[in-house]
Design a protein around this nucleic acid. Sequence first.
DNA 1: TTGTATGCGTTATCAC
DNA 2: GTGATAACGCATACAA
Lengths: 325, 325
Amino acid sequence: MVTLKDIAKHANVSVCTVSRYLSAGMVVKKETEKRIQLAIKELGYVPNVVAKALKRKETFNVAVILPKINNLYYSEITSGISQTLGKHNYNLYIYEVDNLSLTEHEILQLMRENMIAGIIFVGLFSDRSFQESIHSVLEWNIPVVYANRCIPYAGFPLVYPDLTKASKLGVQYLLSQGKDRIAFVHKHLPDHLLEHFLDGFRQASNGEHQPMVIEIEEGMDLSKDCIPGLVQNHINGVFVLNELSAVYLTKALVQANIRVFEDMAVLSLGNSLMSEISTPELTCVDLQNRELGIRSAEIILSQIRKEELEPVTVLEPSIVRRQSA
Amino acid sequence: MVTLKDIAKHANVSVCTVSRYLSAGMVVKKETEKRIQLAIKELGYVPNVVAKALKRKETFNVAVILPKINNLYYSEITSGISQTLGKHNYNLYIYEVDNLSLTEHEILQLMRENMIAGIIFVGLFSDRSFQESIHSVLEWNIPVVYANRCIPYAGFPLVYPDLTKASKLGVQYLLSQGKDRIAFVHKHLPDHLLEHFLDGFRQASNGEHQPMVIEIEEGMDLSKDCIPGLVQNHINGVFVLNELSAVYLTKALVQANIRVFEDMAVLSLGNSLMSEISTPELTCVDLQNRELGIRSAEIILSQIRKEELEPVTVLEPSIVRRQSA
DNA sequence: TTGTATGCGTTATCAC
DNA sequence: GTGATAACGCATACAA
C-alpha cells in the first residue's frame, strides 16, 4: 500500500507538504507540486479515507434507516437521497430494520461506532417504529432527519408531505368529477393522521357532511368485506390512502363488475410505478417521494456543515390524472 | 469521546488488557473483567470502528453497485444482500451508477480509498455497464462478485439464473397449455443471451420449429408495432423476457380485445410485485432475485474470509402460475 | 495473565 | 513555503 510517506520520499518533500498539496485550497510551490503529482502517478497512490476519518474525527458516510428497501415507496425516497449524497461525495449506508433484527438502540450504537456523519430515518407516515430512537438520538446530538413522519416538530428536523393538502386536493378533485359521496379507505393509519385527511375533507367540502371511513385489516378480503359497504352507502368516490391497497381495491371492483370511475372513482395516495401499471391506471395524489429524499439529504448535509436550517420541511402534493378517477 | 485509554485508567488496568477483553476469545481474569465492564458502563464507552479498521487494515463495509435502486428488480436483489450482510454484521454501501455520473474507474477508486471489504456488481443480465471495470478489479485483487451477469466465467465469481433452463421451463409450460406457436419478446437483449433462450426453446420443443423473435425498441407502441405481427403469425403464446414489458404488452392486448390466455398467453420472465398486481395477473418464470442477492453476499463473505468458493453459482428458475398463461 | 511500546495513514501544531 | 513531530483510537509483538 502506497502512503503519503512513500510519495513524500519519492518527491523529496516532507509528508506534510504532500498532505497540504492534497488538501485542496492549500498553497504549494509550482515546482514541488509537479514533483508530487509525478510521484503520485508513478507510485499509484490512493488516499486512505479511513485514516483521514480517524484524524479528522468525521466520516463522509450517511446512513439511511428504513423498514425495507424492496418497496417502491422507500426505494424512491432512497434514490433521491442517493442522488443528493452522491453529488456531494458522501457515501450511503442502508440499514433495513425489518431485515436486521436489531433494536433501534443497537442500530444507533452501530452508527456511533462507525462515526456516521448523519442519519436519515425513513418511515411510513403511519408507522411508529422509530419512536424509541428519538431519545437516544437527541442525547447523542448527531445530525438526524426524520423523513416522512408527519408529526409535530419535536426537536429534530422533519421532512414530510402535507397530508391535509393532499386530502383537500384529492377530495376537490373527486368533487370536480361529480363524485360527492366519498369514502376514505386506509390501512393501519393512526387516528392523529387520519385527522389530517378529515381536515382536508372539511376544507374541500365546506364541512357539509362526513366521509365514510373504512380500515383495511390484515388478511381482509376486499371484495367481501369492503366493497359491499361502499355500495350500500352509495359511495361513488373512494380515496385510498395506500397505493398498494388502491391497486387491490381496483382489482376487486373490476371483478365485482363495478365500473371504476363511472360507478366508483378510485383515487390513490402515492404515485409509484404501481399506479401506472394498474388496470385501470390509477389517478393519484403524488406525495413527491423522490423530492422527499432529496430534501432530506440536503438537510442532513446542512446539519453536517452546521448551517442554518428549517426545522420542518413540508412538501406540496399534486394530482396526477390517469383513468381511475 | 471515551476511549480505551479512559476506561483503562478508570479500571486500573492497561489499555492492552481492555483491548484484549473486547476482542472476543481472549482470556482475562474474572476480577479485572468485572472492573472493565463496570468502567465501560459507567463511562459509556463506544468502540471506534474507524480506528480499528485503520489498524487492522480491513473494514466491514461491502459495496453494492447497481444502476438504480428504485426498481423492484434491483431492490429485491439488494434486500437479499442486505439480509445476509446484516446477519454477519457487515455494513452495506449503495452506489447507484445511473444517479452518480461517475465512471467505473472512479467508483473503483472510491472503493479503494474507503478500504471496502468487497464489491457486488449488480446488473441486468442484458447490460454491459460493468464491462470496463473488470480489468481494474482483477489487478487490484479485491473480493468481487458479479451478480446477475450471465456470461462465461472470466476470473471472478459469478451468480446468475439459469436462463436456458428458464426458457425451457417457460416454453414447456406454454406447450402444456396448448400454446404451440410461440414468440419471444425482448428488450435490448444481446444476441449471446437471446441464444440461451433459443436453446431452451429447442430443448423444450424437440427442435421442431423456430420461435418468432420480436425486439421492443425504445418508444415503441406495442399495440401498433408489436401486436399486429403477433396476430398475423398466429402466435398464441408469448414469452416476454422483461417483466415490465410483459405488463405493458398485457395491457395492450386487453385494449385490443385479444383475450389474454385464451387467445394469447403471456408468460413473463421475472416475478416481482408487478406481475402480481398486473391485470390479468402474470404467470411468470421466477428468477429468484432475492436468493440471487443472498448468494452473492455469501460469496463475498467467503472471499473476505479467504475460504474456498464456487466460481460460478447458477440459480434454478421456477414457474409461478397465475392468470395470463 | 498483564503491561509497554510501536505503528496503522493521516492531519494539525508548531517552528523554521 | 516547508519540515519535524505529535496526535487520532486501536491492536499487537514482545517483555514481564
